[in-house]
C-alpha cells in the first residue's frame, strides 16, 4: 500500500492505495465521487473521463499511485455547488442524453475538446474529436449540437 495525496475538485485529499488501484476506483470507492462512470474494460468508452492536470484522460487507465501531487477535476467539480457549467447546461438544453450513463464522460471530454480546439467547433470536428466517447442511446446527434452550443457559451462566461 502507498499513500497518495492529490487535489480533487479543489480539495486536498489523501488515501491508502494498492499499486493496482485505478484513478477511477480512488474517485468512486475512496472518495465516493460516483459521477465518474465505468462503462468498459478495454479503455474504449470514455465514460470515466476526468481532467488530470487540466487534460482529459480515461481514469480507468491511470494508476491512482501515479497521481501523487496531481490536480483532478471530475464532473462534480466542474461547476460550483448548485450551478451548472455552460457545457452541462447545453446538454440539458439540447436534450443530449437519454439514460445519462455516458454523459459525465461526454461533458468532461467536451470541455477538453474546447481547450484543444477552441470555441468555434464545426460538426465534423466535434464528431472526430468525440472518438473516445461511446453513447449507446442517443445516436450522437444531440450530443454534437450540445457541444457546439456549449463551446460557444463557454466563451461568454
Amino acid at each position: 500500500m502507498t499513500r497518495v495525496s492529490l487535489t480533487v475538485n479543489g480539495q486536498r485529499v489523501s488515501a491508502e492505495v494498492e499499486g493496482r488501484t485505478l484513478l477511477v476506483q480512488l474517485l468512486r470507492e475512496h472518495l465516493r465521487l460516483t459521477g465518474t462512470h465505468v462503462g468498459c474494460d478495454t479503455s474504449q468508452c470514455g465514460c470515466c473521463t476526468v481532467h488530470l492536470n487540466g487534460k482529459g484522460v480515461k481514469s480507468c487507465t491511470v494508476l491512482a499511485a501515479s497521481c501523487e501531487g496531481a490536480t483532478v477535476t471530475t464532473i462534480e467539480g466542474l461547476a460550483p455547488e448548485g450551478k451548472l457549467h455552460p457545457m452541462q447546461e447545453a446538454f440539458r438544453e439540447h436534450h443530449a442524453l437519454q439514460c445519462g450513463f455516458c454523459t459525465p464522460g461526454m461533458i468532461m471530454s467536451a470541455v477538453d475538446m474546447v481547450r484543444r480546439k477552441g470555441n468555434e467547433l464545426d460538426e465534423h470536428t466535434v464528431r472526430e474529436q468525440l472518438e473516445g466517447n461511446i453513447c449507446r442511446c442517443t445516436g450522437y446527434h444531440n450530443i454534437v449540437k450540445a457541444i457546439q452550443a456549449g463551446a460557444v457559451a463557454m466563451k461568454r462566461t
Partner: peptide, 9 residues
C-alpha cells in the same frame, strides 16, 4: 492515433 483521450496519455 486512437482518440484524443488516448493521445493525451
Amino acid at each position: 492515433i486512437g482518440d484524443p483521450l488516448v493521445r493525451n496519455r
